[in-house]
């Protein structure tokens, strides 16, 4: 039931197992974040802190507002009210691309590999501060050729690590679902992020690839990166997360290490969809 003891769990020493708990060294803080679509309130989070250097899972039943909240945290959506702080930078009104440049990179639930570009071009795209991305310098290859070589070298190293080297020159569209997830993760690393946000990294991945994906995610933490992921797959949550945040109906209802979550009454209620219901009804189900 429990994952093997990890040093990462020491990061949470003294943190209470309750929604909105303050962390010892938060990298990302959300305050009163609210987002409504029409009349429907999708997200209404009072307070959340994400611990630096740990793997945090964001879980919850369908329609809990996880993905919306995830989009709000990465600035791919703008909240109606509320503040988000990433490494002390206020994210209000900041464009999504700037958030990436601040060091927070996300992936997508439906993988966004650029299918009509080659795998290596997908990777190269992730390189930051490329001189050749200016139109005028693009016309003068000698200004960016060296940087391009460096980027390619780094990209090849990452492809090696994610076991995609053999696909290097293929169009990304020819990759399998799992390979695309790997490519997307590897590409995100090209940005050299401090924090990686993974939106359902296991969705649509065949079981054979799952273990390697899990290892890669753990690898990110071991390199000092912070990981936040949204996931349905409880096995994955149990196995790799250091801390779990549970959402239901747009709110955070529970927080704690994975082993504390399974026994949390609020969580059980939320998943069985009977928040007002009694234990008797639960048994009847």
């Amino acid at each position: 039931m429990t994952a093997e003891p990890s040093t990462a769990q020491e990061l949470f020493d003294g943190v209470p197992y309750e929604p909105g708990a303050a962390k010892n060294d938060p990298i990302l803080v959300a305050d009163n974040v609210r987002r409504a679509f029409g009349g429907l309130v999708a997200v209404d989070v009072e307070h959340l802190e994400v611990q630096r250097g740990a793997i945090t899972a964001l879980i919850g039943p369908n329609g809990a507002g996880k993905t919306t909240f995830f989009n709000l945290l990465t600035n791919f959506d703008e909240p109606d009210t509320g503040d988000r702080l990433f490494e002390g930078n206020d994210l209000s009104g900041v464009s999504a691309y700037k958030v990436a440049n601040l060091g927070m990179v996300r992936t997508f639930q439906l993988t966004k590999s650029l299918s009509k570009m080659t795998v290596i071009d997908n990777m190269r795209l992730g390189g930051t501060e490329q001189a050749g991305e200016s139109f005028f310098r693009a016309l003068m290859p000698f200004l960016w050729r060296r940087q391009e070589a460096e980027i390619t070298e780094r990209a090849d190293a990452l492809l090696e690590r994610f076991k995609l080297s053999h696909m290097r020159n293929e169009f990304a569209g020819t990759l399998s679902g799992g390979q695309r997830k790997l490519l997307e993760m590897a590409r995100a690393l090209m940005v050299r992020p401090n924090m990686v946000m993974l939106d359902e990294p296991m969705a649509g991945v065949n079981p054979a690839l799952k273990q390697s994906l899990l290892d890669h995610v753990k690898g990110l933490r071991d390199e000092g990166m912070t990981v936040l992921f949204v996931e349905h797959d409880m096995d994955m949550v149990q196995e790799i997360s250091d801390w779990v945040v549970v959402m239901a109906e747009g709110k955070i209802i529970a927080e704690g290490p994975p082993e504390s979550i399974a026994s949390n009454q609020a969580v059980v209620d939320a998943y069985l969809g009977s928040h007002h219901g009694s234990a008797l009804e639960l048994e009847a189900d």
């Binding site: 691309y97 990436a100 997508f108 590999s113 650029l114 009509k116 940005v191």
Partner: peptide, 17 residues
């Protein structure tokens, strides 16, 4: 070309689409 394929992907990699 990345923007043509998927704007959000380009944006997530720090490109001002």
């Amino acid at each position: 070309r990345a923007i043509r394929e998927d704007e959000d992907a380009a944006r997530s990699l720090g490109k001002n689409a």
